[in-house]
């Protein structure tokens, strides 16, 4: 049996500045609360749609079996609104649904405020301090498809090379952080705002951008799934690369 090659470099400690550590944990906590309250909200209406309209009387893209509201079928027809065949209909609900949105929604928005306000400070700070340029953005000559392929292969074999203190993250890692900070998190905030009647009254282009209020809700859901996947991989990598050391680096900064 062949032995794994010893890393050529000693593990280096990333020195996270205090504002990075603080915003990391505020975002981490608010994200966990957002996932929890988001699931509670989704349990109330576990159907997802495309376009502007979606309700129990219209077809869904798919339905999740995550509460007693799943396919409950408790509707009593009131009749059609118009005379023609296939006219929109009305029906009265006869089933007592699971609904914890009274606190669920308020908790969701409270934690969203923490995420958004932290993001509004973190992103400019990241640009002005050079944090994004130095740590996230692949340097000249660093990115090539060969290098990326090699990074993927090494990750799949769980043989991740240690980086240097000047360039602490690998290509895949940089890609993941860039996707989360500049892709998924802005996307999930904007699709969340697209569900707000007061916001879309002022910014109707949001409805165009995301193909309607229900599409925005569906995209919001998939963005949250991707972010949860990122979180799982992120935590796995922290464990594999030395849990105590990494937690110390992100809390005490040394």
């Amino acid at each position: 049996m062949e032995t794994m090659p010893a890393p050529t470099l000693h593990p280096v400690l990333v020195r996270h500045p205090a504002w990075v550590r603080l915003s990391h944990w505020i975002v981490a906590m608010s994200f966990l609360v957002l996932v929890f309250s988001g699931v509670v909200i989704l349990m109330c209406h576990p159907r997802l749609y495309w376009g502007e309209v979606g309700n129990d009387l219209t077809p869904a893209l798919f339905e999740l079996p995550i509460s007693r509201n799943y396919r409950h079928g408790g509707w009593e027809q009131n009749g059609a609104f118009f005379g023609y065949a296939g006219s929109p209909v009305s029906a009265s609900r006869t089933y007592d649904i699971f609904n914890q949105n009274g606190w669920g929604r308020s908790l969701h928005f409270l934690s969203a405020w923490f995420l958004v306000l932290t993001g509004l400070l973190y992103v400019p700070a990241g640009f002005f301090s050079g944090h994004f340029r130095r740590k996230f953005w692949p340097g000249a000559g660093e990115f090539s498809f060969r290098a990326l392929r090699q990074d993927v292969r090494e990750h799949l074999q769980l043989r991740i090379p240690f980086q240097t203190a000047e360039n602490p993250y690998g290509l895949l890692q940089k890609g993941a952080y860039l996707t989360v900070v500049f892709g998924l998190l802005p996307l999930i905030v904007l699709t969340g705002l697209t569900m707000s009647p007061a916001i879309t009254a002022v910014f109707p282009f949001l409805l165009k951008l995301f193909f309607g209020a229900q599409s925005a809700r569906t995209i919001h859901f998939f963005a949250s799934v991707l972010l949860v996947l990122f979180l799982l991989v992120h935590v796995l990598m922290v464990v594999l690369s030395g849990f105590r050391r990494q937690i110390r680096a992100m809390t005490l900064g040394k």
């Binding site: 309209v53 129990d56 009387l57 509707w75 009305s90 609900r93």
Partner: peptide
């Protein structure tokens, strides 16, 4: 665009 409308 008028759609079916649940009464809840």
């Amino acid at each position: 665009d008028i759609s079916s409308f649940p009464a809840t």
